[in-house]
Write a protein that binds this DNA or RNA. Sequence first.
RNA 1: GUGACUGUAGCUCAACCUGGUUAGAGCGUCGCCCUGUGGAGGCGAAUGUUGCGGGUUCAACUCCCGUCAGUCACCCCA
Length: 404
Amino acid sequence: MSIIKPQTLKGFRDFLPKEAAQRQWLRNIMSKVCETWGYEPLETPTLEPLELFAGQIGEDEKLFFKFKDQGGRDVALRYDQTVPTCRVIGQYNNQLIYPFRRYQIQPTFRAEKPQKGRYREFTQFDIDIFGVASPSADAEVIAVTLDIYKKLGFKRAVALINNRDLMKDVPYTAIASIDKLKKIGEEGVIGEMMKKGIEKGKAVSYLKYVQNIQPDKTIQIIFDYLESSGFSKDWYKFEPTLARSFSYSQGPIWEIVIPEYDENSSVGGGERYDALIEKISRQKVAGTGIGIGFDRTLESALACGLVPDFKSISNVLVTVFSQELWNESIKISNSIRRNNISVELYPDAQIRLDKQLKYANKKGIRYVVIAGPEEIKLNVVKLKDMKTGEQKTVRLENIINLKF
RNA sequence: GUGACUGUAGCUCAACCUGGUUAGAGCGUCGCCCUGUGGAGGCGAAUGUUGCGGGUUCAACUCCCGUCAGUCACCCCA
């Protein structure tokens, strides 16, 4: 047997306890907020038939993680969550109750060349509503998203909103270039359009046209919804040059930006995609929603200092004074644990007390229980607060009432 | 997928350009001072197949090729 180098695959990551706890924190808030708006969790398989993804969107299928399974079927790892959800709509159309609201937080896989913030397995967070054609649905999804960023503690998140229908006279290739305006500037956009075969005069006029688009009734409905939901005016904005270069985008389109983190790139974006749903599900169901980058959101929250410190999940460490008192320490830790408090018992009676305290200190465990012969004789324990250094004596029968 | 840069101790880096005896430092880790009390301090200790494989050479961390991984740009981003 050869020795295997301990290493994750290119673009794949481990999440050690601290990071895993942060991710769990984010996931919990996202789910919780979704559920307060009536959105239900949905999960779909990691593996789908390759045909589900291939050819549905765009012609480029190079980035699929695909292979043949043991039965010779062509399969692919989940490439996004929108397409499987459209499949669900086709498959369970009779059992779903419309309007159908769902959120989904699952890993997605793309065989991209990894860079910072760009991995081959990453978590995607989608919020969508199906069965409502009115812009009020788009507005609701935007409101839920903004609510999430508010609850996470961001000072401000901004929804940049536009309506793809207002660009009906502009060809898709031009839209895809205009979408890069912020990144490459006006000249870059025109240059790119020309490279794609659009003549200069037309390219310039497309850009001008888009830059001068005025908000329509649809945008107004969305703004009214957001205003009534209590979001102040600096949380949403009409952005005529926002294009979202997805061929299937239609109707309202929007992106979410966190100004205090990164003014120029979004943490997520959404659109209406009725036609895509019909194509995949063969059902006429309206649908709109947003895809949010889970990793990017966590990164922003960390940068803005919003993530609590997850040094240790334990509130209390019960030390073991000696082998003779091992059973006493077991009993003490269990009686604290009964109160639904995270307690760890130091797992080795041979280790000196100072080492045990050092361990508590390093792991960031706030309270330490010390029970030596003197304490046990008197039916008490010493409770030490590692943060303040204070130490008090507690009667054993009162330990269950302690608050940590 | 295309192009560029990087890879030395757990971490951040030095030595590489101009090949030459035992590859260094800081931080961290561990031990002791401290046999019933952590954070500070003092003293001491351990650690590297120089990412991996091959080539050139009397001699390779150093030069060359390949490979793996990371980073950046492009591409892409449902």
